[in-house]
Design a protein around this nucleic acid. Structure first.
Length: 278
DNA sequence: CTGGGGAGGGGGCCC
DNA sequence: AGGGCCCCCTCCCCA
């Protein structure tokens, strides 16, 4: 199990984005995404009587299937990525800003109604639609590029912005988020633990961690201290050990000027009451 | 309580 | 893109 100290604090309430991974990995799914996208576009562009009501979408395209939309309550929640926090800023159509939203916000349906009144409609899949009298504009949620046609925006989203604009990749096993897909994949290994020790069955996230662990069985200690006879199985631990030979200790208490070889020791010292003000 | 060793995870870089 | 490696960090445990 991953240690709790390694769990990043979840800064937002955003939901997992695993559809991104799935759709990238599977070309069939990707095709279905496009199909579903255009169905949504057609539905969206069909004018409805009186005022334009936002289409009742049951689900987003599969890239966002984890963000299923439900209308069981009066308000439908429309998820937005963190980069959408400036969604309501409109630099192209002359609309005044509607206010600043928290990064993790979900738009409520009343927000859409509000946008309707201002002549601007959001599409949960891609961006805002500014339907002025003369012509419509289609603006990307993420990079705010404007297009005269919905297909133009769709193409932009599919070919250019879809990946570049997504700032976070969320773990499906926990609520951690990463700025890159590679970092997320690496993190997921801490859940799946694919590297298993044949001697004791203990599992690790990365091969080199397993290698280090195997040294605890073999007793191999390839990292020797040049100052004493000690040897270590792990280079990091040798480095920590070398600090004990150093006259200069890097970490100093601000209150009593006592120095420590490790920041963890300084932290313990401060927590023990030397620096009650800090 | 303090210091140090053992063990393991995350991010970054390179190939 | 993925694996290997390195550095840094943290916690646990023990003397």
């Amino acid at each position: 199990m991953p240690r709790s100290f390694l769990v990043k604090k979840h800064l937002t309430n955003k939901k997992p984005n695993y559809g991104i991974l799935d759709s990238k990995a599977d070309g069939t799914v990707h095709f279905l995404n496009i199909l579903q996208l255009y169905v949504s576009i057609v539905v969206f562009l069909i004018p409805t009587p009186a005022s334009m009501h936002f289409p009742q979408v049951d689900r987003l395209p599969s890239r966002d299937t984890s963000l299923s939309l439900h209308s069981s309550t009066q308000d439908i929640l429309y998820p937005l990525s963190v980069s959408h926090n400036n969604l309501l800023r409109d630099s192209h159509s002359g609309l005044e800003p509607l206010g600043t939203m928290e990064p993790q916000t979900f738009l409520l349906s009343q927000d859409f109604r509000h946008l309707e009144e201002r002549g601007s409609m959001p599409n949960p899949l891609m961006g805002l639609v500014h339907s002025s009298v003369s012509q419509e504009r289609f603006e990307c949620f993420d990079c705010h590029k404007a297009y005269f046609t919905f297909s133009g925006l769709a193409k932009h989203r599919q070919l250019h912005c879809e990946w570049q604009c997504h700032k976070y990749f969320s773990c499906k096993y926990c609520d951690k988020e990463y700025v890159s897909l590679g970092a997320l994949k690496m993190h997921i290994r801490t859940h799946t633990l694919p590297c298993v020790c044949k001697l004791c069955g203990k599992a690790f996230s990365r091969p080199w961690l397993l290698q280090g662990h195997i040294r605890t069985h073999t007793g191999e200690k390839p990292f020797s201290c040049p100052h004493c006879s000690r040897a270590f199985a792990d280079r990091s631990n040798l480095r920590a050990h070398l600090q004990t030979h150093s006259d200069i200790k890097k970490y100093q208490c601000k209150s009593c000027s006592k120095t420590f070889s490790r920041i963890s020791l300084l932290s313990k010292h401060e927590e023990s009451g030397c620096c009650p003000q800090s």
